[in-house]
Structures are given as structure tokens and as C-alpha cells.
Amino acid sequence: MKRQNLGELELLVMLAVMRLGEDEAYAVSIVDEIRQRTGRSVQRATVYVTLQRLENKGLVSTRLGDPLPERGGKARRYVRIEQPGVLALRDARRTLRSMWGGLEPTLEAS
């Protein structure tokens, strides 16, 4: 299978989706999750575009939930990580670990 590289924002969104789980991960909750965990404010528009890109790559899939009154009768689009997405996350973790490996003393000392 073709190796998928993840950009930083893609990685953050994927991790947020994984944390939230497939029944809770939708655009608004993803934005909240990233903000709470990282302190970074991400535009919802950016998350929509990133999710679309991830979906085009086949890393995530989406489904519409039931209409909800607090949303004016509109449904949520829930996001789920697919198997290629899991592989891409593992790949990203391995890459980052190998790059970070042995750098802790240097980083702390400087």
C-alpha cells in the first residue's frame, strides 16, 4: 500500500478523532479537542478542509448522524479512522520517535 505522509494539522485532526472515538468525533468536537489539548485555536473551516483531504486520501470516512434539535434539526457528520489512517498514524509515530530519539538531553541542556 502506498505510504501516506501526514501534515501537522492532519496529524492533529487524526489524533483528535482517535481520542474522541467514532461516535463523538465531528468538526465542532474536533476543534474543541485540539484547543483543549494543545491550546491552539484552529478554525472550523480549516478542519473541514483537512477532513475532506483525509477522506479523499482514504484515511478517514464520514457518516451523517440523526437530526438533533440543538442543531436546528440538522445532523452531525461523524468521522471514523479507517485502517489506512491507523497505519499512517503508526508511521507518523515511528518517524517522529526516530527523529526525537536521543535528542532529549540536548534539548533540555540548551
Binding site: A27, V28, R44, L68, E70, R71, G72, K74, A75
Partner: peptide, 10 residues
């Protein structure tokens, strides 16, 4: 559907 729903919810 979902984008307008998100707008409403937020």
C-alpha cells in the same frame, strides 16, 4: 447538512 448544523450548534 452538517456544516449548517455545526454553525447552528456553535
Amino acid at each position: 447538512e452538517d456544516v449548517l448544523g455545526d454553525l447552528e450548534e456553535v
